[in-house]
Write a protein that binds this DNA or RNA. Sequence first.
DNA 1: AGCTGACATGTAAGTTTTGACATGTCAAGG
DNA 2: CCTTGACATGTCAAAACTTACATGTCAGCT
Lengths: 179, 179
Amino acid sequence: MSLRIALLGLLAASGPASGYDLAKKFETSVAHVWQAGHSQIYPELAKLTADGLVAVEAEGPRGRKIYTITPEGDAELRRWLMEHTPSTTLRSESALQAFLVPLLDPRDGVAVLRRIKKEVEGRLAELEALRAAKNAADARSPGEPPNRFGAYALDLGIRQSRAALEWAEDAMADLERAT
Amino acid sequence: MSLRIALLGLLAASGPASGYDLAKKFETSVAHVWQAGHSQIYPELAKLTADGLVAVEAEGPRGRKIYTITPEGDAELRRWLMEHTPSTTLRSESALQAFLVPLLDPRDGVAVLRRIKKEVEGRLAELEALRAAKNAADARSPGEPPNRFGAYALDLGIRQSRAALEWAEDAMADLERAT
DNA sequence: AGCTGACATGTAAGTTTTGACATGTCAAGG
DNA sequence: CCTTGACATGTCAAAACTTACATGTCAGCT
């Protein structure tokens, strides 16, 4: 379900796009919130078309198909946003490692935490770069209200990454005391 | 892979247990890090047994089977912890909703954020209850070093929930300014 | 003219996850 | 004795996801 919604959302927010475009946007924008590769996206777009939630607006060069959201699709999107209680399913391999770290002896545990910390730092840097790019884009069109689409999620990601970073530091310090 | 590791980890940390016990622990401890229902756990235990990573130690009443981790299982677990770079795959329906909120008019957006905030509050309360229970258990066995198994992950969850809570408040305030 | 690399779309096989179905044991209370 | 509810284990079909395979177009460079 969520994949459909993510696709409908991108079409609603950024206008008509091809499967290829949508796959790109998954990498650069929604990725921090929901991930999907093109092998999932193309079939889903076909299903959405069959269900009347999107339509092929035009065909471009190289077999490019441009999809638009239909009014039904828009209604579905809004309904999901307003009514669907998000599942709280969580799955994080990093957190699983963090969970299990006390099984290792402290030296090894610290090494694992250090690696996790590095990954968090990388993610944080990515997110901050995205936000900087967004801010720059907003600054280029003064007068216009800034485009907040995706901005809240970005902010959430940044805050959670910062929290994870502090956690990694404290956890390492704690483990080192036990060495 | 991660499911196996989670099961091996629980067996390594808490000693022999049945599939039923492990399913319970998934609900009350690992759940904040990795989720799985019994319909996934039983077949996986069978596979782990076939692969020699766990073994049936004893059979109790009501067909209860008690599994133990084998030395091979323990080695596998440690290898994964030390060597496996966790995948950064992220999928959060709440974050997806947050991402899409700006598509709604501010009034509706605030309502969605309010709901997300309530869910985060619920989760935070759960995690804090777990931590309180853990602390109480540690206090009951003085002298013993506190059992840190799962504690780091719990701490991470709590910090991230707090960050999400602050985010929700700020995002709502931001949206309300736009009303 | 040929090569490279981004553009563009798909399929297929295999794994993981979900949700429903199915079955049976045992203890405690009415 | 009977019912209820926790204990206990499983299977199955469908959906979602991953990874690899497969094919072809077009622009720009050499």
